[in-house]
Design a protein around this nucleic acid. Structure first.
Length: 151
DNA sequence: GCCAACGTTGGC
DNA sequence: GCCAACGTTGGC
């Protein structure tokens, strides 16, 4: 089983939304490195839910991969901000996953705390200027985050 | 293939 | 709202 971290702005789609929906298509990723990570996810992989562009930013809970290799439907939707005119049904460009809610942590693990605990090489989200929205998390780091989440 | 311009992300 | 960092685009 692999561990990952994915970002979302809570004003757009936060962990409370996922808790309500139970599952969701993680659409709108339009970065090739992030997409390649999405492509390599398998069912059961654990994904930390990170709230970005909010105060404070940080890890707020856990999800799991429910269905891998899902074609992002927004790439075909001309009205979507994620519309990609170069994508066709025969040759889609953007794959993603369906995630399922697992838990909301009792309290957020803030970016400040993550910076104190982990090095940028171990946890990419603490790298300066990091804009990648999907990234792998080493197992040892993931276990430490989970331990921290339980208090 | 280089790189300047541009748009976006995301912390603060 | 500001702006640094960074990915993408497009002219050459």
């Amino acid at each position: 089983m692999n561990y990952w971290l994915m970002k979302s702005e809570p004003d757009v789609y936060g962990i409370e939304d996922l808790k309500r929906d139970r599952t969701t298509v993680w659409d709108g990723v339009r970065n090739y490195q992030a997409r390649n990570f999405l492509r390599s996810m398998v069912p059961g992989d654990r994904v930390f839910f990170y709230h970005s562009n909010t105060t404070p930013p940080g890890i707020v809970g856990l999800m799991k991969v429910a269905e891998p290799n899902v074609i992002d439907p927004t790439q075909f939707d001309a009205k979507s901000k994620y519309y990609d005119p170069k994508a066709t049904k025969d040759t889609p460009r953007w794959q993603t996953v369906i995630v399922a809610f697992v838990e909301t942590f009792p309290q957020i693990i803030t970016l400040d705390t993550l910076r104190e605990t982990f090095s940028p090489d171990d946890l990419w989200v603490v790298r300066q200027g990091n804009r990648l929205s999907v990234m792998p998390v080493p197992e040892a780091v993931a276990e430490q985050i989970l331990k921290q989440a339980k208090g």
